[in-house]
Each structure stands twice: as C-alpha cells, then as structure tokens.
C-alpha cells in the first residue's frame, strides 16, 4: 500500500536555510548541509528544498550549495527555485535531484510544464502553487509576480495537470509560518478537482494537523516550522498518522 509522506520543506536564502512567516519575515535556521544530513539520519520520506532568491537573483541557481545538500540525501530530493530552462533541470537532476518544483516559470510560460514533463516524465515535475486569500477568494499568488487575479485557482491546477504535472505542492501563504494548522478548506477543494498527488504545505504545528489534512484528501504533508521550532520530529508525525489509521512508513 502506498504510504503518506511526511516531507520537511526547507527554504534557501542567501546561502542559508531560512523560514518565512506569510512569505515576509525570514529567520535563518541553519546550515543547509548539516540540516540535510540530520533529515537523512532521521529517515524522512523525502526532502523539498526551495531556493527562494534564485528567481530574482542575478546569480541564478546556486548549484554548488544544492549539490552539497544532495550529497547528504539517500532519500528523494525535490529542488525548486529559479529554474528557467530544460538545461537547468538537467543540471539539477545531474547533481542528485529526483524531482523539480516549478513555480514562476510555470505561471509565465505554462507550456514549459509540458516541455519539461515530456522530456523528464511527469513523475519528475512538481508544480508549486502558492495560494493566498484575496477578498475571501483563494487566489494564486507568486512571490515575484504578486496576485495572479486573472487566473482562477481551479483553472490553474487543472491546466497544470493537463500539461503533465506529476504532483502539486499547495502552499497556503496565509497560514505559512503561523503554526495554525493546514488550510483544510483549500486542500479539500484542490483535491476534488485534480487526480494527481497533492502535497499540503503551510501552517503545520502539531501531528494532529497532518492527520486532519490527509483525511481531507492530501497525499503527503510538507512542513517546516514544526520541525525547526517545536519538539516534534517527522517520526512523531508518522506515529500520530499510524495511530489515526493512515498508512505510513515507520
């Protein structure tokens, strides 16, 4: 039976690992290589690393530091941030990424989803969708482009699926870093509309949050604050999931 995954999601900014609150305040939380090594030791199901400066930085993707991280991982590794070409993807896979998360480029040029999934396979391409409420409506948000008001969330995730996305990483910007639990309404809405795996992200503060969002339809949970700022480890979450009758790898 396929297991629900518990995935630490770490952000890279100025060569440091960082954690955001609602995509605004940033706090440095450690060194990338050391943190990856700890997650590898803790036997996590997967690791997501997003370089949040790479899209806007002139220097672009920091392959050196990402390779350092990849060298510590004997688990699946997803890398995102600043990807602009198929060659970028090729280089990231070559240093040890298994999956690639696309955000800004997918919004600017949706055909890139198709090009990349045809070349590398759908299983390799995750579309990261950041969602923020505007006037009470779930709206696609992008750190570099702002609110994408002429694009309905549902329309966008269906487009991603149609163009070959293999998974969606759905992040609630409103809940990000607030440790108030996942946005259950958002995740259950998204899960009803597409038939590809959904990774819920944003807001987890305790194992019960993970139980709730997986029961609402998510396939996997990503989290950051909970592992950096609370007593809980990925295994604590998995134990709670097992207790709740959800399939996990322990």
């Amino acid at each position: 039976m396929l297991k629900h995954r518990v995935i630490p999601c770490v952000l890279l900014k100025d060569w440091q690992l960082t954690k955001s609150v609602q995509f605004k305040e940033f706090r440095t939380i450690g060194h990338p290589k050391v943190t990856s090594k700890i997650y590898n030791k803790r036997n996590v199901d997967e690791l997501i690393v997003l370089d949040i400066d790479a899209s806007t930085n002139k220097s672009g993707i920091n392959f050196e530091i990402l390779a350092d991280i990849a060298n510590e991982c004997f688990m699946p590794l997803t890398i995102g941030g600043g990807i602009k070409s198929l060659n970028d993807i090729n280089k990231l896979l070559a240093i040890g990424a298994d999956k690639i998360s696309l955000n800004t480029i997918a919004l600017k040029n949706p055909d890139f989803i198709k090009e990349s999934s045809s070349k590398f396979g759908s299983q390799c391409i995750i579309i990261s969708v950041d969602v923020m409420k505007k006037n009470g409506v779930y709206t696609v948000f992008n750190k570099n482009l702002g609110f994408c008001e002429n694009l309905s969330l549902i329309e966008w995730i269906k487009t991603c699926e149609r163009l070959g996305a293999g998974e969606l990483l759905i992040t609630s910007v409103d809940n990000d870093g607030l440790e108030c639990g996942y946005d259950i309404d958002l995740i259950s809405l998204v899960c009803k509309e597409v038939n590809i795996p959904i990774i819920a992200n944003g807001g987890a503060s305790n194992p019960q949050n993970a139980v709730d969002v997986l029961k609402a339809g998510a396939d996997a949970v990503a989290a950051a604050s909970i592992f950096h700022f609370t007593k809980y480890t990925p295994n604590n979450i998995k134990e709670a999931l097992k207790e709740a009758g959800l399939a996990v790898r322990l």
Binding site: L2, K3, D45, P197, A220
Partner: peptide, 11 residues
C-alpha cells in the same frame, strides 16, 4: 483509478 504517477513509498 488511483492517482498517477505512482509516487512515494510502497511495500
């Protein structure tokens, strides 16, 4: 009928 791709840990 399950979600495709098959991605994750399976026994």
């Amino acid at each position: 009928d399950l979600k495709i791709p098959h991605v994750g840990w399976n026994d």
